[in-house]
Nucleic acid binder design. Structure first.
Lengths: 331, 331
DNA sequence: CTGAAAGCGCTTACAG
DNA sequence: CTGAAAGCGCTTACAG
């Protein structure tokens, strides 16, 4: 059972009393403003803070300021390694700016996206990093609450809202061009229905530009199982592709499992180029040739946009093709 | 640039005014208590809430109650798939109980564990789910702030603090016994220095009980790279083991990469049994035989302990050996 | 440079 | 069943 007398944490008033100053002065030194404090006074306050092990109550501050110092982050599923790395990086980046991060995996919740955003709004998060696009109505609502928003990794910028993204079609194109350079002539595509366009267009452009016919296209889910399924479908085809561009490393991992289970080999029976460049991609067999998204730079730019509060930001970051063995390159 | 006149969100007073009642009554209906409200009044309030799209301000509520409705969660690194799954499950479980979850990956932060806990304390989190053990001093401090704590996945219970765990040695034992059943006689161990004892003891017990000599033991980091390194070390040994028990699926993934890179095969050249049972383990090549930890049950019990506020809880959950191909079993 | 005081949006005894 | 009022721990004009 819980012990009876729980000593309450020190408050700003306790500190003020001990230091012999007013509450306001304690606030001034804790926040380094907005008014100046004499050096001697400041020292006394600091001593008192230390002696009492005082930590400002973040909820009181949030109420008073009308805004917390928490950022919210919306991803589809933080178990996907790419999102996991984004969240991890965003966490570090937010901390560096004195903010905490509250992450929600929107997929797999019984609540709608709007309801999940509402929860964050109720907590008065100061900013929101979202991999979901928002409708003008949603943006208006968020803005009405004074919440800054930045949308990341969407194929295109939403007007009037800061966005940080990567040139998805260009990234896909470099991967497919690399596959073409290997001499593969029948290049398939695996992607997800919802986000199909950007990466798929990159694939289609590269294939067409090389004067080749479009290979088979499989649309599935962004998941391990989706990738596995896609692999199965591809392998069952009467006329199999000799290479495939897969829209995410997680899908590639699933697809690889399907190929192995069929007793076939990558790249000999089916070459593969992937997208994301998560750490795991180097540890799969074979190691993935993949388009690396600059996770640290994405989150850094996103947090910067939140902090700067400039709605006209549209940062487009470059991707980088990481060549490993799944495409057929030598070790 | 941001639009000028941001309409402020509706407050409880707005609702009260519209419904023609006092602020207190709005509170009573929002919280279904602590005082009863007449049905007709209640209906008017609900209408007003709806009309104004009112959402209670969570920060004001937290200040007033002295406690937020947020749970904190401490993991080492949420990019590790096992932790990612724990976090995901804890998130869902918390939501089901009306709580939000704020997760922090303690590794890789420049802050100490104490400092990271302090941040959560400053936010007045109501409870804390931690994969780290706490010292009596830390527990005392947390308790002093009225914060409930539950420690998960530690090898042993901390007296006076609720804990939810798995029988680590028993789990390891079943995996190693399975390996022994295959006829392997020289069985190695891969684990991490910090948590070595529990899983390592299980391995050692099973090996000794079978009258076999202990195979080589490699201590490294809980990471992909740690697993890769361990694989390298094992393969360089003059007298290689014919099987190995690896302490985590993430490490196993790294080790598998090392084996493949060396042109060797699992299980033919080195059989493998792993620990955790993350989703990914089924998609590796070969699929991992692994000791599955009941992630959903762990988080459910942890949240239940937090909600119940009973310090004497010590839940020990069973693991389950999932047999796949890495141990040498047929597909 | 410092302090007294109002206010942030809630909750909760206390009266009625 | 309902309301007036104090209080949670901060911040921030406003005076001095």
């Amino acid at each position: 059972m819980r012990s009876v007398n729980t000593p309450r944490p020190a408050t700003r008033t306790d500190v003020a009393r001990l230091a012999g100053v007013s509450d306001a002065v304690v606030s001034y030194v804790v926040n380094s403003g907005p008014r100046p404090v004499a050096a001697a006074t400041r020292a006394r306050v600091l001593d008192a803070i230390h002696a009492l092990n005082y930590r400002p109550n973040a909820t009181a501050r949030a109420l008073s300021r009308g805004m917390s110092d928490v950022f919210g982050m919306l991803v589809v599923d933080a178990r996907n390694p790419f999102f996991a790395q984004l969240v991890y990086a965003a966490n570090r980046e937010s901390s560096a700016h004195g903010h905490s991060l509250m992450t929600v995996s929107t997929g797999g919740s019984p609540l709608s996206l709007d309801e999940q955003v509402d929860e964050l709004v109720a907590r008065r998060v100061r900013g929101l990093i979202s991999v979901h696009a928002f409708t003008p109505r949603q943006i208006e609502r968020l803005r009405g609450q004074g919440i800054h928003v930045v949308v990341i990794n969407q194929p295109a910028a939403t007007p009037g809202i800061p966005s940080v993204r990567v040139d998805l079609p260009a990234g896909a194109r470099t991967a497919v061009e690399h596959l073409i350079g290997h001499g593969y002539r029948r290049i398939g595509f695996v992607g997800a229905a919802e986000y199909r366009s950007a990466r798929e267009h990159g694939w289609a452009d590269a294939v067409s530009a090389a004067g080749l016919p479009l290979g088979p296209r499989v649309l599935t889910e962004y998941s391990l199982d989706g990738g596995y399924d896609a692999g199965l479908q591809l392998l069952q085809l009467e006329h199999r592709p000799d290479a495939v561009f897969v829209s995410s490393d997680q899908m590639s991992m699933g697809l690889l499992a399907a190929v192995h289970a069929a007793g076939l080999r990558v790249p000999e029976d089916l070459a593969l180029a992937s997208f994301d460049g998560v750490t795991e991609s180097a540890y799969l067999w074979p190691p993935l040739t993949t388009v690396r998204q600059p996770v640290a730079e994405i989150t850094a730019a996103a947090v910067a946009a939140l902090v700067a509060d400039d709605d006209d930001v549209d940062v487009v970051l470059p991707t980088e093709l990481v060549v490993r063995r799944s495409c057929g390159c030598p070790p």
